[in-house]
Write a protein that binds this DNA or RNA. Structure first.
Length: 603
DNA sequence: ATAGGGTTAG
């Protein structure tokens, strides 16, 4: 029987474990001369061992039943329960067991507190964490290194700032690599990779030897600030330290190269890995999804032929890849694979499917998935709103927003961007402005550059360009290129050349390489008949990489994707396309319903 | 018999 078969046959029959444990005990007692061979271990030790084994197999119910039947339960047994629930990510149960333990007058030790602090971290429950902290002080075990590191981790994860975590860190007399790594992770996981890297540097200056854990989080910090230069240096250090075959470290290096947009380095790193796991593949597939979705799909099939089973992470990236490519047929097949594996209970994955159907033009399927969800998170609502918005259903977006707030979910900046952009495209200007005001008044959210960009776009599209300009002037911070860009778009559409030139100049001040801006500017000059200026702009554009500025459209017909740009000759098919277009226009005129989606006026 | 930090999606 293979090892695999053995594992699966024991999964639902835990009895053989007892036999295995007893054999182990017999072996131990016969080999160790100092232990009397005929004294059996107390039953509570047997039971505690068994509890741990149950949890290792995910059988928390069995563990709980056994624990309930134990006549005497010491700290170790209680702690094993707390550790077990935490390892199954059932933090609430873990905390409940801890409270039950306190009620039973059992004193927690350092093992118990470091474990329960991990549960507090998992629940992000600062109140529980501080209670555990005071108990640690009360029982005089706050000097334990394990407890100190766990406190540091809990405060870093649960608090709004790093202040409390830093206080704990500074009070640790002997800072080990674990303490330093926990602090680096604290900064990095809240998005402050820069501080994370500074702490890593301080760790090296303090002559604390970094290990594989420290390296992987330091590389993650580089990825989060997009620093290829630091990332590459740390990669070199990893090789020097002989950690070039540590899979998690290499996975984070791979991810760093992907996020810094150095796909060549990523592919080389991947090729040099002698050992890989599922995360390795998922990292590369996710990396390619962002910049080369079709390559991402071919990596997916390659992964399958090498015998790896995709998980939820894999499918999320693959679904996003189908969305980016707008390949409905492929996306539907992926959806089938998700259902077949029972992954369709994952909220994140359904969110990705909603986005995929919307981007493939199938907004009804998006809505059906959204309605059938037993649970929705903020991303679900946002994705559905962006989908409706991009299809021109402005009023549906507003309905969804109100429904979301009623269901008790707090909106964030991204949701407001979805609402504002939907209002902008549907011409619901006043409605959009009232949402803009309500952001700060009702939800205490400070509008940032992107939000101002949306509002400028909202006003600009409706032709209220003067008001848009006044808004830009009254902004509490310096407008950036997203704000000026929105104004420029409006100036172009309404042929306001003077303001347009000012806006374009501002965009170019901040982003001198934006080919699209030169294009808009050159068109303004062309419209004015200033052909000398026009030629100058076009000449400036020539030298730059403006490949990404070309707006592409594509359509999937019989499993083939055809993409085309404005004025494309599209080979032999173009004649046929024109005929179909003519027919479509004729039908639309006949119906008198051409502007159906664009005509949602404010009521 | 019970305890620590790291890597993948949205």
């Amino acid at each position: 029987m293979s090892a695999n078969k053995l594992a699966s046959s024991t999964r639902f029959h835990p009895i053989p474990l007892i036999i295995r444990n007893s054999l182990q005990w017999i072996n131990n007692s016969t080999t160790l001369q100092s232990t009397p061979p005929f004294t059996p271990k107390p039953p509570s030790i047997w039971a505690t061992n068994l509890i741990k084994s149950y949890f290792d197999r995910g059988l928390s119910k069995h563990a709980r039943n056994l624990f309930d039947e134990m006549p005497e339960r010491d700290v170790v047994a209680w702690t094993a329960m707390i550790v077990g629930f935490t390892s199954c990510n059932d933090y609430t149960q873990s905390w409940a067991v801890f409270c039950e333990m306190l009620r039973s007058d059992i004193h927690p030790n350092a093992f118990t507190l470091s474990s329960v602090l991990k549960a507090c971290k998992g629940m992000k429950a600062l109140s529980c964490g501080t209670l555990a902290h005071s108990l640690a002080t009360k029982h005089g075990i706050d000097g334990s290194m394990y407890v100190q590191n766990a406190l540091l981790d809990m405060y870093a994860t649960c608090c709004a700032t790093m202040d409390d975590a830093l206080t704990v860190f500074n009070d640790i007399p002997l800072k080990t690599a674990v303490s330093w790594t926990t602090l680096i992770a604290g900064f990095t996981h809240r998005g402050d990779g820069y501080s994370g890297l500074q702490v890593f540097r301080q760790m090296l200056l303090d002559n604390v030897e970094p290990n594989s854990f420290s390296f992987s989080i330091a590389v993650r910090a580089c990825a989060s600030i997009g620093s290829y230069a630091y990332g590459k240096q740390i990669h070199a250090a990893v090789t020097k330290y002989g950690l070039h075959s540590d899979i998690p470290v290499l996975n984070s290096i791979l991810d760093m190269y992907c996020r810094c947009n150095y796909l060549c380095d990523a592919k080389r790193c991947f090729g040099e890995m002698t050992r890989r796991n599922l995360i390795t593949w998922n990292t590369l597939i996710a990396g390619y999804e962002r910049s080369d979705s079709s390559e991402s799909l071919s990596l997916f099939s390659q992964m399958g032929s090498e015998g790896y089973e995709p998980n939820c992470f894999t499918f999320t990236s693959i679904t996003a890849a189908c969305a980016n490519l707008a390949v409905l047929g492929c996306g539907q097949q992926v959806h089938g694979g998700i259902i077949r594996r029972g992954f369709d209970n994952s909220v994140a994955l359904v969110n990705a499917l909603i986005d995929m159907y919307a981007k493939c033009g199938n907004i009804n399927d998006s809505h059906k998935l959204f309605c059938d969800m037993p649970q929705r998170d903020l991303v679900s609502w946002t994705t559905m709103m962006i989908g409706y918005g991009s299809h021109g259903y402005g009023k549906e977006v507003i309905k969804l927003f109100d429904e979301m707030v009623r269901s008790g979910i707090q909106p964030d900046r991204i949701v407001f961007m979805a609402v504002l952009s939907a209002c902008s495209h549907a011409g619901l200007v006043n409605k959009g402005l009232s949402y803009f005001r309500s952001m700060l008044e009702d939800y205490n959210l400070n509008p940032d550059h992107e939000i101002y960009g949306c509002v400028v776009d909202l006003l600009g599209r409706a032709g209220r360009v003067e008001e848009a300009f006044q808004l830009v002037e009254s902004m509490p911070f310096e407008p950036d290129e997203s704000v000026w860009g929105a104004l420029l778009g409006a100036c172009k559409a309404y042929e306001l050349s003077n303001l347009g030139k000012l806006a374009a100049q501002r965009v170019l001040d901040t982003r001198p390489n934006m080919a699209g801006t030169y294009l808009l500017l050159s068109n303004i000059y062309a419209a004015e008949g200033k052909w000398g200026e026009f030629a100058k702009m076009r000449k400036l554009m020539k030298g730059m990489d403006n490949k990404k500025e070309v707006g592409k459209s594509w359509i999937e017909i019989r499993n083939e994707v055809y993409s085309f740009v404005v004025g494309d000759k599209m080979g032999p098919h173009i004649e046929c396309v024109h005929k179909v277009l003519k027919l479509l226009i004729w039908h639309m005129k006949d119906d008198g319903d051409v502007t159906d989606l664009d005509s949602q006026h404010e009521s």
